[in-house]
Each structure stands twice: as C-alpha cells, then as structure tokens.
C-alpha cells in the first residue's frame, strides 16, 4: 500500500480527505451496487422464499409456514446424507490437491531452466478446461458404453457409476485433476517468497531435506497454504458440475448444491429449495468463519496487500 497518496499536513487535510472519500466512493459506487444487487438481494429473497410453502406449479397455494421448510429439510435423512457426501468430497479432494499441488510446486521451483517454462505451460492446461468438459472427459473414460478404463483394468463389464465408492472416486479424480494446477500455482508463489539464503544457511548447517522442509519451508508458507486451503475448501464444498454430468446424484452422490438445484429447478419446490440454498450459504459462511477465527487466516493476504 506504499503508493497511496498521503494527505498533506495542515489545515487543508480535511478538505483533501473529504475529496478523496467522495472520489473513492464515486468510483467504487457502481461496482459496490452491482455486487450488492447480485448477492445481497438474492440471498435475502431466498431467505424470504424459504419461509413459504411454495410450489411454482401451484402458486395460489402459497402460504407462510413459519420456517417449517427448515424443519422438513433438517429432519430429512437425505439432507444429512447429502451434507455428509459433500463434506467427504471436500475433505478428500482438498487434501489430495494440497499434497499433489505442493509436489507440483516443488517440481516447478526446482526444475532445471530448460524444462521450467514448458512445465508451467502444461500445468496451466487443466486450468483452462471448462469444468463440464473435464467432467464429460472423465465420465466417458469410465463409462460402460464408451470407456476404455474397463478394458484397460481388465474388467470391461464393471460399472464405475453403479457403486457409491467408485462413483465417488471418479468424481473426486475429475475435481482433483482440474483444480490441482491452480493450487500448485498459489503454493509456488508462496514458495518463491522464501528467502534463498535462509535455505542456504539451513543447508550449510547440515539440515537434511526433510528438516529443511518441515523447519524452514513449511513454517514460512503457512499463510499462503491457509489462503489456498480456504478458497479451495469453499470451492469444493459448492461442487455441482461434475456431479450433475457424471451421476446426476445417483448412488448417494448428490451434493448440497445439487440438492438445492433438484428441489428448485427440477421439482419447482421453490420454498424447500430456497431453504436448502440458505442452509448451504450458512455452511459456507460457517466454514469461512472457522478458517478465519480458528486458523487465523489473514484475509488481507488474500486481497494481495
């Protein structure tokens, strides 16, 4: 923040400050209004809708039901099953992405000059692929009708999407493939900030590779790891595209986002669907809160300050 113009001392300070405040809000105002319009308004509207017994096909039968939708959703084993699966996918994929992403970041950092740019190019490709396209690719690779994986694993008749655990593995694999490059780029940025002489000193003092890793590198990049972790966790928790394309929620692989979609868009149960949406929003807010309070993630780092 060194480039910020400091107000000049003296009597004109307040004038100047007032001017800057006005200018600042004048310039940021439109964006702030748009952001509020596309998020604050919909979530309030969702909350309002969630308090009604409301089915789009039968709008006349709409009535206020005092939050009974929440009782229905929270009392339904399907909600807990869906939430459980979403948490499972989130924890599993983010954990693997972190380890794999860190390994990729180390590879890029230590790569010899001739391969480094080349590696970065290749790594960026999955990032550029649309999530739905990646989901189709993985689906068709494993699918009974089109897939080669069955033949390659010597089990051509095996339906990967017919069983909870194998469906879970394929969905997770697609997610991990698509997002690991991104996490590795974030971690690489963190790794590159560790002063080289610090590592050199550790090396001279006879620290082993493992000691350098756990005593020097990791402690110095906790902040970037936590920021990457927070954003990937929130992103993974909202998973929808892969599930929609691969299983449509069959075999117990529906996620919270998918459940809200199915309720609102497919079944037109606006009241119930809104309740699920609001609960999903609450979960995301809770995860965010836990990260910031418990793990003390410094958001100003995420803002790039």
């Amino acid at each position: 923040m060194s480039t910020t113009t400091k107000p000049a001392p003296g009597a004109r300070t307040s004038d100047r400050a007032r001017d800057e405040t006005r200018m600042g809000w004048l310039l940021s105002g439109p964006a702030v209004l748009v952001l509020l319009a596309v998020t604050a308004y919909p979530i309030l509207q969702a909350f309002y809708q969630s308090l009604f017994n409301y089915r789009l096909t039968d709008p006349d039968a709409r009535y206020f039901n005092w939050g009974y939708n929440y009782v229905v959703v929270l009392g339904d084993p399907q909600w807990w099953q869906t939430l459980g699966f979403t948490l499972l996918v989130t924890v599993f994929t983010v954990a693997i992405e972190l380890v794999l992403g860190f390994a990729l970041a180390l590879v890029m950092l230590n790569a010899v000059r001739t391969v480094r740019p080349w590696l970065r190019t290749v790594i960026l490709i999955p990032y550029g692929i649309i999530t739905v396209v990646s989901a189709f690719s993985w689906k068709y690779a494993f699918d009974l009708g089109t897939g080669f994986v069955g033949a390659w694993t010597g089990n051509p008749g095996f339906d990967w999407f017919g069983d909870f655990w194998t469906a879970f593995l394929v969905i997770s694999a697609a997610e991990i493939w698509k997002t690991t490059p991104f996490i590795s780029l974030l971690l690489l940025a963190g790794l590159a900030q560790i002063p080289g002489d610090m590592l050199e000193a550790a090396k001279v003092d006879g620290a082993t590779w493992w000691q350098r890793m756990t005593k020097v590198i990791l402690p110095n990049m906790t902040a970037s790891i936590m920021v990457a972790l927070l954003f990937r966790t929130l992103d993974a928790f909202r998973i929808f595209d892969s599930v929609f394309v691969m299983t449509s929620g069959a075999q117990g692989t529906a996620t919270v986002s998918f459940l809200a979609y199915a309720q609102t868009i497919s079944q037109l149960q606006v009241g119930l669907g809104s309740a699920v949406s609001v609960l999903l929003f609450a979960c995301v807010a809770l995860i965010c809160f836990i990260f910031i309070k418990l793990f003390r993630v410094d958001l100003s780092r995420a803002r790039g300050e």
Binding site: T4, T5, K6, P7, A17, E20, T21, M23, G24, W25, L27, S28, A31, V32, L35, V38, T39, P42, I43, A46, F231, L234, D235, R238, F240, S257, A260, Y261, T264, I265, S277, V278, L280, F281, V284, C288, L299, A302, R303
Partner: peptide
C-alpha cells in the same frame, strides 16, 4: 485513494466470490 471503506469494498468482493451460486440461482 485513501478513503474510509476501501477495506470493506475489497472484503466484500472477496465475500461475493465465495458465494454459492445456487443460493443466487
């Protein structure tokens, strides 16, 4: 510029980007 509320604007942008799309849909 230096004005009150600019931290708020950045934090809000951050908040919007983690917003679940389905809750808007």
């Amino acid at each position: 510029l230096d004005f009150p509320g600019k931290k708020f604007i950045l934090t809000m942008a951050l908040g919007v980007s983690i917003f679940p799309v389905i809750s808007i849909v």
